[in-house]
Simulated assay, not measured.
Amino acid sequence: MSDNTATTEAAATTEESSTQTATGKSTRTAKSTREIARRDTGSDRGRTSIADIVVAKIAGIAAREIDGVYDVGGTTERVVGKVREVIPGATVSATQGIDVEVGERQAAVDVSIVADYGVAIHQLAAAIRRNVITAIEQMTGLEVTEVNVTVHDVNFGDDADQSDGTRRVE
């Protein structure tokens, strides 16, 4: 198929609409279901839908990969996660602490974490943001518009040492 034929075919499937903006200028937008299908799947033979839970799992795993992230989730989510660990056969949720909004071509992600003490939080948040964006965009082809990171707590490494019953002072 020549380039002219492909252009004519794409133009034949494109619907153009004209709208008025607040300034009175006319803008033209073009929508083509055939072009959208090609963008989503690489061909015009079908459409790919990605569930929110898939994007949330990818984001959760990507956030946990970063050094300096002690845990993912707020206090309530972490308590529920600890209860799950005790129940036989139950698994820890990969989506704990992750909230996503997924559209046809874009996704937005909110990540809640507990940081290790001593880590530069602004650098940690930037690393989480980069890793989550890269993972989602590479695995799904969705454009990530934003990744919001909320730090709920800071973990001190000696918290676990003190909870074993030993006294610091004798």
Rank of each mutant, 00 (worst) to 15 (best):
E104Q: 10
G68A: 04
A125R: 06
T27F: 13
S17R: 10
D116S: 09
N155T: 07
G60N: 01
R45V: 04
T48F: 12
S32F: 06
Q96T: 15
V109G: 00
E170G: 13
E101L: 00
T5H: 14
G97V: 01
R105C: 03
D153W: 07
R45K: 11
Q138A: 08
D40C: 05
A63E: 03
G74Q: 05
T33L: 12
E9F: 06
G97E: 08
G141N: 06
K57H: 05
V83N: 09
E85A: 10
A51I: 06
S93P: 11
K57Y: 02
T48P: 02
I98N: 02
S18N: 14
S112L: 01
A127F: 07
T134G: 11
D159E: 15
I133A: 02
H152L: 09
D158H: 14
V54S: 11
D161Q: 14
G24D: 06
G73R: 07
G103I: 01
G74R: 10
D67W: 11
A22T: 07
V111M: 09
V109W: 06
G42Y: 09
I61H: 04
H152R: 12
E15V: 11
S93F: 08
G81E: 15
D99G: 01
T91N: 12
I136L: 07
V102G: 01
D159S: 15
Q123F: 04
G81P: 02
G165P: 04
D71I: 01
E170L: 15
K25I: 09
G165N: 09
I58A: 00
A125Q: 03
V109R: 00
N4D: 15
D158V: 10
T48Y: 10
T29S: 06
D71W: 08
V154H: 10
T76P: 08
A160V: 13
A127C: 07
K82V: 08
N4S: 12
V114F: 08
V151N: 05
E35D: 12
I113S: 00
A62L: 07
V69E: 08
D153T: 01
T145H: 04
G157I: 07
P88G: 05
D116Y: 08
E101T: 01
T166W: 10
I136W: 04
D110R: 04
I136P: 05
H152Y: 14
T27Q: 14
A160T: 14
T95K: 08
A107E: 00
D153H: 01
V69N: 06
I36T: 13
S112A: 04
V144R: 01
E35Q: 13
A10V: 00
G141L: 09
T150E: 14
A10R: 00
Q106P: 06
R39D: 11
R168Q: 12
T145D: 14
